[in-house]
């Protein structure tokens, strides 16, 4: 069990962070290039949230804007809380609190990557083998 990739989007829909651990099907076979892939992923989730609002049998407002998208293996359990913790403990801690970070701008931070890997491994979502493959 493990993760494939992660997307972080800002409010305008631009991808501020993307990381992949393991991607058996390359971007070229899908959307073409990475930029289009990220745009389509945001579009997919934007449409999904609208779609959910119309499908909703209880006429609720629907779910809010998703900013973190984590692709995992099918066997992974419900990760709602894990994603919330990922945002609270890792993203806020290592990105938002970083004085060099400009809100809404793309960022690269080794500390964040290390903390992210450690966090996912702790939750059993990342295997050592995958990190090795990503590094190659």
């Amino acid at each position: 069990m493990g993760c494939f990739n992660i997307y972080v989007f800002n409010r305008q829909g631009t991808c501020v962070y993307y990381h992949e651990w393991f991607r058996p099907k390359s971007v070229r076979q899908g959307a073409g290039n990475l930029q289009d892939d990220q745009k389509q992923m945001f579009g997919l989730f934007w449409t999904l949230s609208n779609f959910c609002a119309t499908m909703d049998p209880k006429e609720n407002v629907g779910f809010g804007r998703r900013e973190l998208i984590l692709n995992t293996h099918r066997e992974a359990p419900d990760l709602t809380e894990v994603l919330q913790a990922l945002y609270d403990d890792i993203f806020v801690e290592y990105v938002v609190k970083n004085p060099l970070y400009v809100p809404g701008q793309p960022f690269q931070s080794d500390q964040f990557v290390n903390a992210l890997n450690a966090f996912l491994r702790q939750n059993g979502l990342l295997q050592q083998q995958q990190i090795m493959q990503a590094a190659v």
Partner: peptide, 26 residues
């Protein structure tokens, strides 16, 4: 169309689309 886009964006080959969509209320 969501189906088609989802299978295109899938990181794994051989994806056929969305099988289950979990929302708060349904």
């Amino acid at each position: 169309s969501l189906h088609a886009i989802a299978s295109q964006l899938s990181p794994v080959p051989g994806c056929t689309g969305i099988e289950l969509l979990e929302a708060d209320t349904f």
